[in-house]
Simulated scan of single mutants.
Amino acid sequence: MGSNHLTWHEATITKKDRQRKNQHKSVVLWFTGLSGSGKSTLANAVDNELFKQHYQSYCLDGDNIRHGLNRDLTFRNEDRKENIRRIGEVAKLFVDSGQIVSTAFISPFREDRQLVRNMFEKDEFIEIYVKCPINICEERDPKGLYKKARLGEISDFTGISSPYERPNNPEIVIQTDRLSIDESVSIILSHLKDKTILY
C-alpha cells in the first residue's frame, strides 16, 4: 500500500493538552558536536536534572539508537542523513507527547540539522552546540574511536576523515573544555526558563 492511501489520524488528546497536564512546554534539545565533546554526558545530565525537578523528559543517544531503530544504517553520508531524519521523526513524537527530549548525536551536517528543525514548530527545536577543540576530544577519546580512525580502522570518521559543519546560529553554545557539567546544565535550564518552556 503506497503513501497515497494513508491518512493522518488526529489524536483526541492534543500536544497542548499534554503540555498543560505536564505544566511545561515540550521541546527537543538537539545536542550536536564532535565525538568526545561531551554530548551524551551533558544530555544525560540535563535529563537527570529535569527528572529530579519532576519534568517529563527523555534522552535519545546516538549509539543506543543504532543498536535498534537504525541498526540497518552505515556511517556513509547518505545513511548518516537517514539516521538524523529518523531521529528527527522520533523526537517529534516525543515533543508531541508533551515531553522534553534530549538528543545526543554528532549530526555533522548543517543541512540535516535544518531538515530536522523544519519538522518542528517555532521554538520547539533548541540546537545546543557542544563545542570542544578536536585535540581535547581526541585526548578524551572515551570509546577509542579517534585512535582507530588515525590507524585507518574507521573510515568516514567525523573530524578526521569526514567533515563536521559547526552550527551557524545555535540557540546555546556550551564549551565543555571550559565549563563543568553542573555549570553547563545550569546554562541550559536557565535558557528553558527564560523561554518559558519551564514554568
Rank of each mutant, 00 (worst) to 15 (best):
P163F: 02
K147S: 09
E165V: 11
Y129N: 02
Q56W: 07
E89Y: 10
L29D: 04
F94N: 08
E127V: 11
R140W: 00
E121K: 12
K16G: 00
Q56D: 10
L69G: 02
I187H: 12
V46I: 14
F31V: 07
A11T: 13
K39T: 09
K147L: 12
N83F: 05
Q175D: 15
G68K: 05
R71S: 12
G38T: 01
K25G: 12
Y55Q: 11
D182A: 15
S161H: 01
I172Y: 08
H9I: 13
D182W: 09
G144P: 01
N77S: 13
T32D: 08
R140K: 08
H67V: 04
N77P: 07
R85E: 06
L34W: 03
V130D: 01
F31D: 03
A91E: 06
H54N: 15
E165K: 06
K193F: 00
W30H: 06
Y164G: 03
A104H: 02
F75A: 02
Y199W: 11
Q56C: 10
R20I: 15
A91K: 01
P133L: 07
E78P: 01
S107W: 02
F51G: 11
T14M: 09
S107E: 05
I181K: 13
I181L: 11
Y146P: 00
G33D: 04
N118R: 05
K52C: 11
E139G: 05
Y129F: 15
V27A: 01
T14Y: 03
V95Q: 05
V90Y: 04
I134Y: 03
L179R: 13
D96Y: 12
H9D: 09
D141P: 04
M119I: 09
V173I: 15
R18E: 04
H9Y: 12
K195H: 10
D194P: 00
T103A: 13
L29C: 09
V173L: 03
K16Y: 12
K92E: 12
S155F: 09
L69Y: 00
S97H: 08
V90Q: 05
N169V: 05
Q56Y: 11
I174C: 03
L179Y: 14
V173E: 14
H67C: 03
I84P: 00
S180E: 07
G152D: 01
F120Y: 07
R110Y: 10
K39F: 02
K195L: 00
N22V: 07
Y146E: 00
L73V: 08
T7H: 09
S184D: 03
H5T: 14
I87A: 14
Q53M: 11
I174M: 01
Q23T: 14
E171F: 08
I154N: 03
S97L: 11
T103E: 04
L29E: 09
G2I: 08
P142Q: 01
N22I: 02
V185E: 08
S190R: 14
I134G: 05
G38Q: 07
H67G: 08
T196I: 12
